[in-house]
């Protein structure tokens, strides 16, 4: 079973989540603030950290600070961001810091467990809202800007746009695969490559947007 660390400053939420996940994953520990989370990650080396975006403590950087301070473990520990609000600015900061995905706190236990498995397998988890933000930030609605090669960082390829659109429309990975006549693995690869672009892109709008909200 996947070894998971729960990081959230609300004990009620943690215990509820722990109860929900009992069957699906092994919860190895809990932390309630930035410093405790960084310590617990270094000690316990969980496979996945379920990380609240809004956390007290540390330098006030919340979940993104936890990811940044654990940067040297990013190869071995994966972060899944949890946020109560699905506003993009809450989420993009922690994704840009290195988290592999994001879900809202309103997600059911089953959804959380699925997302943990996806992240543990090295893939990315996108909510419809995050997919919508990505399409906006990479100018997909503007029309022309399609990447010619998949490795271009500042634009999405036509296939990536396709996948993002379907996720934004509420399709699960499996449904996206069926719809586009591709394998689930291919869907996961495309989502991961979009995640990489979201993390690494210096695209002007994205950077300006993030700077304005002091996410960088």
């Amino acid at each position: 079973m996947t070894r998971v660390l729960l990081v959230d400053d609300h004990s009620i939420f943690r215990s509820g989540l722990r109860a929900d996940l009992r069957e699906a994953v092994e919860v190895v520990g809990e932390a309630a603030d930035v410093d405790a989370a960084v310590r617990a990650i270094a000690e316990l080396r969980p496979e996945v950290v379920l990380l609240d975006v809004h956390l007290p403590g540390g330098a006030g950087g919340g979940g993104a600070e936890v990811v940044r301070r654990s940067a040297d473990l990013l190869g071995e520990v994966r972060f899944l961001a949890l946020s109560v609000s699905d506003s993009a600015e809450d989420v993009v900061g922690v994704i840009r810091a290195g988290a592999r995905g994001y879900i809202t706190k309103a997600s059911s236990g089953q959804q959380v467990a699925d997302a943990i498995r996806t992240v543990a397998a090295g893939d990315a988890v996108f909510s419809p809202r995050l997919a919508g933000f990505v399409l906006d930030a990479f100018g997909a609605a503007g029309g022309g800007a399609v990447a010619a090669a998949d490795d271009e960082l500042d634009r999405l390829s036509a296939r990536e746009q396709e996948v993002m659109r379907l996720i934004a429309r509420g399709y699960a990975y499996k449904e996206v695969a069926t719809r586009l006549y591709i394998s689930i693995k291919t869907v996961e690869t495309r989502v991961s490559s979009v995640l990489r672009k979201l993390q690494l892109s210096s695209r002007h709008e994205l950077t300006a947007w993030a700077l304005e909200r002091r996410l960088l």
Partner: peptide
């Protein structure tokens, strides 16, 4: 409050 409302929905 928002956290609590999220927990309620979740439960």
């Amino acid at each position: 409050v928002l956290q609590t409302l999220a927990i309620i929905q979740n439960r």
